[in-house]
Amino acid sequence: MLEARLEQANLLKKVVDAIKDLVQDCNFDCNDSGIALQAMDNSHVALVSMMLKSESFSPFRCDRNIALGINLTSLTKVLRCAANEDILTLKAEDAPDVVNLVFESAESDRLSEYDIKLMDIDQEHLGIPETEYAATISMPSAEFQKICRDLMALSESVSIECTKEGVKFACSGDIGSGSVTLRSHTNVEKPQLNVEIDLSEPVALTFSLKYLVNFCKASGLSEQVRLCLSNEVPLLVEYALSNNSYLRFYLAPKIGD
């Protein structure tokens, strides 16, 4: 039996909105630590890993592990019926064939209830090892989104190069080339605008901008984004949520032929 109550439907609406163009059918794995999701896009180039810790819900109850196989297009249609401030409760029996969603609006005494039919999704699960990354960049998520969008106008790939001078996003294409260089920066009044670069060794990798722009749909979830890079391993783009919850994207690098 699962019962998970979110103070604001907005959190789940934004998470699903951020990943629905990358993955279609996902298992929401529910257990006593919370609700997790891991899914790859069809080309196996990008992976999304979401964790909504039980602390994000109140109350949260999950007696045994339940995998809720849900089509994100269907979930989006139902979540559209919830107002951002509605209280959202997810419910499911053990071995369920539907997941139940209840939306309550505090002031107008309105209660909506929806059932979504579940799917049997046989999804391969990738083991992602804890990694000591050579470079970790924490920066405003809106800034990263702008860089990716701007450079995507010139090229389909971006090289990200981290040295002790800073981090350089560079690209070149048919019309020419462009680059954006950031250095560590502290904004005392607005720490959410800080740029922090931790570097243990220089890193240079190339990635597809189409995927990075897609990941940036999550920018509304967190003011800061964390980029983790090491040579020859996938990029980690992490949007931290409250209560140690997170939305993470992994992207395989492009390598020169």
Binding site: L47, L126, G127, P129, V233, P234, G256
Partner: peptide
């Protein structure tokens, strides 16, 4: 042009 790697080459199914 550069070849796009896949995640399966980095992360194995546990």
């Amino acid at each position: 042009p550069t070849r796009q790697d896949m995640l399966d080459e980095f992360y194995k199914d546990p």
